[in-house]
């Protein structure tokens, strides 16, 4: 941690920390991958969060401490907008081995959207707005929120597509977790017993793995061991499972970070002992907003 920030922070008694500090430490912007929207067109919205250097916010599951970052979108009638998709997070281990899942720098939450066809009569411009909230931390933490708006003209049906922010969206999509099926040769094996199951992930060609579980009331991550080998890497996730109904089975949802020669990528997983080899990995389905 930078000494300057620590000094700055320690100089302020907690009681007088300004309330809007959390708002100012993260900048929110709403963007689209189109300059104009045609009837029936699928497009993407992006919530860009720019975090002050040295500070972090939290992933959609915060881990041991923190609270999840949220983004709620308002869209015009008839437009379908899916949930925000988060890029793969970083793992932060604080003193006391408190494990949190965080984001530094700049992230873009991607939302898949679809325009109605036909566009409702009289709608010449589509207005979108996002309300985002977060907890932003370094040594200190502040709750923050921000609002951003975006207005896009409606283009005529049959007009030429009007792409925008292509580089930003290409990079943002590359950071999103991919479907599990794209992780070739990877296996998941369930071991242990019902209360203390262990999920073992083996990924050929990987040099390192990391697991980022989503929040679950029944299945929680207790610990994990990573074993890099010559031609693969293994990760054993020790879990705790609390059954709430007869026939319940552990279920581990989350993201696996895979480091390979060609770089790092994240893969969505949703696995249980009943279907270890068939973890779901499809994109979230856009739903009405």
């Amino acid at each position: 941690m930078p000494a300057l920030l620590l000094l700055a922070a320690t100089a302020l008694p907690a009681q007088i920390l300004p309330d809007d500090r959390g708002d100012r430490l993260v900048k929110v912007e709403l963007l689209a991958d189109r300059a104009a929207i045609r009837p029936g067109e699928s497009f993407s919205l992006g919530v860009r969060l720019r975090i002050e250097p040295k500070w972090h916010i939290y992933w959609e599951h915060h881990g041991d401490s923190g609270i999840p970052t949220r983004a709620e979108l308002e869209s015009p009638p008839g437009f379908e907008v899916g949930p925000p998709r988060f890029p793969g997070p970083e793992r932060d281990v604080a003193e006391g081995d408190i494990v949190s899942y965080i984001h530094h720098g700049e992230i873009v939450l991607v939302l898949d959207a679809k325009a109605p066809d036909p566009i409702p009569p009289g709608l010449e411009r589509a207005s979108f707005a996002v309300d985002a909230s977060w907890l932003v931390c370094t040594e200190a933490c502040f709750a923050g929120s921000g609002h951003a708006e975006l207005e896009l003209p409606i283009a005529a049906a049959g007009s030429a597509p009007a792409p925008a922010n292509a580089k930003l969206f290409t990079e943002a999509r590359a950071r999103l977790p991919k479907p599990w099926a794209e992780l070739r040769g990877a296996t998941i094996e369930w071991r242990g017993d019902a209360r203390a199951p262990i999920a073992v992930f083996t990924v050929p060609g990987a040099s390192d793995l990391e697991l980022f579980p989503l929040a679950s009331e029944s299945t929680t991550l207790v610990g994990r061991a990573i074993e890099p080998m010559k031609s693969a890497c293994r990760l054993a996730a020790t879990l705790r499972f609390k059954s709430s109904a007869p026939g319940d089975a552990p279920r581990l949802e989350g993201v696996l970070r895979v480091r390979q020669e060609q770089g790092e990528a994240f893969y969505r997983l949703d696995t249980s002992p009943n279907r270890p080899a068939d973890p779901a990995g499809s994109n979230p389905t856009p739903k009405g907003s």
Binding site: A94, D97, E139, C141
Partner: peptide, 16 residues
């Protein structure tokens, strides 16, 4: 030293 000495995300304890 401790996770978030000011911030609330404290946590002195090694829970792990």
């Amino acid at each position: 030293v401790f996770a978030h000495p000011f911030g609330g995300l404290w946590v002195a304890g090694a829970a792990f």
